[in-house]
């Protein structure tokens, strides 16, 4: 079983890697400027925010949860950042730090409702999804936009640093952090245990509530970081920032081989999932296809990834039923 599962996961990521490479070569042959360095950087710039959200969505889904509010929180944090800078006259640095704190508080709200009242993450984050976006609209009256940020701040989103897009080093740092967290620390181990069996985790002495709270707070902080980068890239903050990003993040995670039922999944799989989606949407533009095709294909990809994730589960269930039915009875009555 172990070998079966492991080879399966390995296969998933190799297949995905092959898909990404194929995409690359295909679009390179179709679009004239697709393979250029400028365009590569363009892809990176455009996928950093969704990539950040997908990175923090990975541990959440590993624990068997979900967070629908990250896109809305991105919007709320973006306009609060703008508000702090323009109306409260904070320096971009101070505003940024405050925004990260706001993200932590918002993630903490999700975490509290989920762990303290044991409410399903789905409905809690659906509520905060509406709440955060609504607050963003209420604060900006739906029309206010924040622009004319100083160049020193826009550097973060639009210039190059160390020969790559300036936001790329931040993304790489976060990716390394989340990868280490999930794959190399006891926290990541706990997330998986909780995803497989929350009750079993309790009996092993793992602080289930604190670990779950941790992943939602982390998601809040990183959503705020994504909001700052988003603002710097576009040079403006609007209430509709990040609309629908939660879907792209979830898609990337599930596409990357993480089971929606929790326990199984990797961060590098998620990164490949992000790459697959980013290259697809950029490449389709270069192939002179309308932007919407990319969105549609993303949704279809998610459905396909879900179906493929459920097939081994169905097999395992069949096998388990065949294996356990007889022996369990035997031991009870022996």
């Amino acid at each position: 079983m172990k070998n079966f599962l492991r080879s399966n996961i390995a296969k998933h990521e190799t297949v995905l890697l092959a898909v990404v490479i194929t995409e690359w070569f295909y679009f390179n042959s179709v679009g004239a400027h697709f393979g250029s360095l400028d365009n590569t950087f363009d892809i990176v710039r455009h996928s950093v925010e969704i990539g950040l959200l997908a990175l923090v969505m990975t541990p959440i889904i590993l624990t068997g949860g979900i967070d629908l509010s990250v896109g809305s929180l991105l919007g709320l944090c973006a306009i609060l950042f703008g508000k702090l800078w323009r109306d409260a006259h904070f320096s971009p640095m101070a505003a940024g730090i405050c925004t990260l704190g706001i993200g932590a508080v918002a993630g903490g709200l999700n975490a509290t409702l989920i762990t303290w009242l044991r409410l399903p993450p789905l409905i809690v984050t659906l509520g905060t999804y509406s709440l955060f976006r609504g607050l963003a609209e209420a604060i900006t009256h739906g029309v206010d936009t924040f622009t004319k940020f100083p160049d020193s701040f826009l550097f973060l989103g639009q210039e190059r640093f160390l020969g790559m897009p300036a936001q790329a080093p931040i993304f790489i740092l976060v990716a390394i952090f989340v990868w280490l967290l999930v794959h190399r620390t006891t926290f990541g181990r706990s997330f998986r245990v909780i995803g497989f069996s929350p009750e079993g985790a309790r009996y092993a002495g793992i602080p289930v509530e604190r670990r779950i709270a941790m992943v939602y707070v982390l998601a809040g902080i990183i959503s705020a970081l994504a909001a700052i980068i988003y603002t710097a890239r576009l040079g403006q903050a609007k209430a509709d920032a990040g609309t629908g990003y939660e879907l792209y993040a979830i898609t990337a995670v599930v596409l990357g081989g993480t089971s929606i039922f929790g326990g199984i999944g990797t961060v590098h799989g998620t990164l490949l999932g992000v790459a697959a989606i980013a290259i697809l949407s950029n490449g389709l533009v270069h192939a002179r296809q309308p932007r919407e095709v990319a969105g549609m294909l993303t949704g279809l990809l998610l459905i396909l990834a879900l179906c493929s994730s459920v097939v081994p589960k169905l097999f395992a269930r069949l096998r388990a039923r065949r294996q356990t039915a007889a022996p369990i009875q035997a031991v009870k009555t022996s």
């Binding site: 789905l122 979830i250 929606i260 919407e292 969105g295 549609m296 279809l300 459905i303 179906c307 459920v310």
Partner: peptide
């Protein structure tokens, strides 16, 4: 298939929406 309804309908939501935009602009 026994898939969770939240993710399935999330996926169909975006698929239909984008398909419609694509077709009708």
């Amino acid at each position: 298939l026994g898939l969770p309804s939240i993710v399935v309908t999330l996926a169909t939501m975006v698929t239909w929406r984008e398909a419609l935009r694509w077709q009708r602009q």
